[in-house]
C-alpha cells in the first residue's frame, strides 16, 4: 500500500513532454518546404527538444519497469480539485473570457469575482463577497477606464457611464 503511495505519478509528468513532441512535429511540418532562414534555428532547437523528451520518456519507461512509478495523473488531477473549487474557478475564468467582449470589463469582472469567490468560499459570506466584487469592479472602472481611458473591453455599463458623465 505504501509503495503505491510513494510511486511517482509519471502520467502527469509525461504531459508536457508529449505536448512538446506533438508541437515540435507540427512546427516541423509547417517549415518543411520553407527557406533555410525559417528552418535553421527551429530544427536545431526542436531537435534538442525531441532528444531531451525522448530521454525523459526513456527514463520513465525504466522507472515503470523497476516499479518506481505509475502512469497515474494524481499529481495533476485529484478530487481536491473539486473540493477546493479549482474546477469551478476554471469554468468561471473561461466564462470571463467569453463574456467580457459582450458585457464589458466592469459587469463581467463583477460577475466573475462574485461567482468565483462564492465557489471558493463554498457559499459563505455572500453579501460581503458581493460588496467586495462590486468595489473591485467599480474601482477598476474608475481607475483604468474613467481616469486613464485604458483600452479595456467596453460594454453596456461603460457606454452608459460615458454618456452619463458626458452629459453631467
Amino acid at each position: 500500500m505504501d509503495t503505491k503511495k510513494t510511486r511517482r505519478q509519471l502520467g502527469g509528468e509525461l504531459v508536457i513532454p508529449c505536448l512538446a513532441i506533438a508541437f515540435t512535429l507540427y512546427f516541423f511540418s509547417t517549415i518543411w518546404n520553407s527557406p533555410w532562414t525559417a528552418q535553421v534555428s527551429a530544427f536545431a532547437v526542436g531537435g534538442v527538444l525531441l532528444l531531451v523528451c525522448g530521454m525523459f520518456i526513456l527514463r520513465c519507461v525504466v522507472m515503470l519497469g523497476q516499479g518506481e512509478g505509475s502512469l497515474g495523473f494524481g499529481n495533476l488531477f485529484s478530487r481536491d480539485d473539486i473540493a477546493t473549487g479549482r474546477i469551478g474557478l476554471f469554468f468561471t475564468t473561461l466564462g470571463y473570457c467569453l463574456l467580457i467582449e459582450r458585457l464589458g470589463f466592469t459587469l463581467t469582472t463583477f460577475l466573475f469575482l462574485t461567482l468565483s469567490m462564492i465557489i471558493l468560499s463554498k457559499g459563505k459570506r455572500p453579501l460581503f463577497i458581493t460588496a467586495i466584487s462590486a468595489a473591485m469592479a467599480l474601482g477598476g472602472w474608475a481607475v483604468f477606464i474613467w481616469a486613464f481611458d485604458t483600452r479595456f473591453p467596453r460594454g453596456w455599463f461603460e457606454t452608459t457611464m460615458k454618456a452619463v458623465l458626458a452629459n453631467g
Binding site: 508541437f23 507540427y26 512546427f27 509547417t30 517549415i31 520553407s34 527557406p35 532562414t37 525559417a38 527551429a42
Partner: peptide, 8 residues
C-alpha cells in the same frame, strides 16, 4: 525575420 515565412 528574413523572408517572413509563417511558422507554427
Amino acid at each position: 525575420v528574413v523572408y517572413a515565412t509563417p511558422r507554427g
